[in-house]
Nucleic acid binder design. Structure first.
Length: 443
RNA sequence: GCCGAUUUAGCUUAGCUGGUGGAGCGUGGGACUGUUAAUCCCAAGGUCGUGGGUUCGAGCCCCACAAUCGGCGCCA
């Protein structure tokens, strides 16, 4: 009951003149009462299949007519080269088996009008029917690009001798402020869903030295933007002995490798999304400029933006800053007062921390946040106390520094954001199968 | 948390100054031997988001609520 013939291979000419069995789903049908055209879809492509009444007989022909959109079929027949068919190949059907039929009372709800209304994006209806929208060509393309990006992240880090390492998703404390944690009941106690792998990665840093992960992170932010999810996929790395510059080199290397991999594996798909391949090639091949926070403030003030030194840069300011950029830019050396305790203070100037954000162009915002960590026991205690953060939940984090602390650092990359940016999506929801945000946990 | 908008058939929508809601797609029936979102004819399908109010009369005006969408803060 397996499957041996793939529509993509048929369209590539691997089965010309052969009699084969195609297994797939009906994408569209049309025809008369003598001839029927079935556009059959599988995960690799589509092909037009032609059924004729005088060849099939009345019974098989009528059953073919009854195969509504998204019915699953097994069609047997001969593959012919035919210019009249999309893709250049066509099957002449000799036998029909309907595997899963569709009730005419409840036809497939994702209609042409529903797709046209979304205009390449999304509508409430398509979000409600996400489980069915997944099988349309646009979502299938996004899911393939997504797979490509995940594969690229693994291949980049493994190629650089990083070790994949897993942290728990139930945690006791926060990485960021704390107000954005999801609280979950835990056998009469409170636990939280992790916001980041970082703190647990630092515990393993003295063991593995170079480590990475791809894992979901959870943030209870009521953000309603095209860049935010409450559950997102986080690619993080941690590296012993590393400087801010070295960490940035990896961030740049990783993002360029993702762009290159997506281009190598899916250029036709990117073109089908109207993405400019030349632009992506620029992202894959160019070095990314680096700029200090102070310089960014000067540029913004020069443009008349009301911003003071010491403020974190919110999206409205990022947008102004990046609107003239045609490449991702690193922003480094933020003021200490704008960043949490785990960022290492710059030994050359105590007002700054050794950190970086990578800002994507085209208005996609921040895709990487990282830097060197506060690594001595003395300094971490000082910074935790300065911020008024309780020590208790972080005792294991402090211990890491008490026993042979070393300089180290890392970054976190928002995988969905990168895919959204590289695919040119209107909204981050378009690149994840079942998006979760502050107002939606279904389907 | 703040600001703005939307809600009419399964989907997408039109609906005038308040006077018994039309269409396209899809579905069903019919016609057609090569279609490309096939075409042509016919039919079924609506308590106009929910509740209240104004009015002789509300899809339309007013109030409340709900759901959803967009933007901001925050961040990846």
């Amino acid at each position: 009951m397996g499957k041996t013939v793939w529509i993509g291979d048929v369209q590539d000419g691997l089965h010309d003149e052969q009699t084969v069995e195609l297994k797939g789903w009906v994408k569209r049908t049309r025809g008369s009462n003598k001839i029927r055209f079935i556009v059959l879809r599988d995960s690799t492509g589509t092909i037009q299949c032609v059924g004729k009444r005088d060849v099939l007989g009345d019974e098989a022909f009528e059953s073919l007519k009854g195969a509504l959109i998204e019915s699953s079929l097994i069609l047997s027949g001969t593959i012919l080269v035919d210019e009249r068919a999309d893709g250049g190949h066509e099957m002449t059907i000799s036998n029909v088996k309907i595997v899963g039929s569709v009730d005419p009372e409840r036809p497939f709800p994702i209609t042409e009008s529903a797709m046209a209304a979304a205009d390449g994006g999304e509508t409430e209806f398509l979000l409600d029917n996400r489980h069915l929208y997944l099988r349309t060509s646009r979502m299938t393309t996004m899911l393939k690009l997504r797979s490509s990006a995940f594969g690229a992240i693994h291949s980049y880090f493994r190629g650089q001798d990083f070790i994949e390492y897993q942290a728990p998703n139930f945690v006791a404390g926060a990485v960021e402020g704390g107000s954005t944690l999801f609280e979950v009941p835990y056998f009469g106690k409170k636990a939280y869903l992790t916001q980041s792998w970082q703190l647990y990665a630092e515990a393993a840093m003295p063991a593995l030295e170079r480590l990475y992960t791809i894992a979901p992170s959870f943030r209870a932010e009521k953000s309603r933007t095209r860049r935010h999810l409450t559950e997102f996929w986080h690619a993080e790395m941690e590296m012993a002995w590393a400087t801010n510059d070295e960490i940035m080199n990896h961030g740049e290397g990783l993002v360029r490798h993702i762009a290159r991999t997506m281009l190598d594996e899916h250029s036709p798909e990117l073109t089908s999304l109207d993405r400019d391949i030349e632009r992506l090639a620029l992202y894959a091949d160019s070095p990314y400029p680096r700029m200090r926070y102070d310089e960014a403030i000067e540029i913004l003030q020069g443009k008349g933006v009301d911003v003071e030194w010491g403020q974190d840069l919110d999206y409205s300011k990022e947008k102004v800053l990046t609107q003239d950029f045609d490449l991702p830019h690193f922003l480094t050396h933020y003021p200490k007062i704008a960043k949490p305790f785990y960022h290492r203070v710059d030994p050359d100037d105590g007002n700054y921390v050794l950190c970086h954000d990578l800002l994507a162009p085209e208005g996609y915002g921040e895709i990487i946040g990282g830097g060197e960590r506060t690594w001595s026991e003395e300094e971490i205690l000082k910074r935790i106390d300065e911020e008024g953060t309780p020590r208790d939940p972080y005792q294991f984090y402090i211990d890491v520094r008490s026993y042979g602390g070393v300089p180290h650092g890392g970054f976190g990359l928002g995988v969905d954001r990168v895919i959204s940016w590289l695919s040119g999506a209107e909204h981050i929801r378009e690149v994840i199968p079942f998006p979760r945000d502050s107002r939606r946990v279904t389907p």
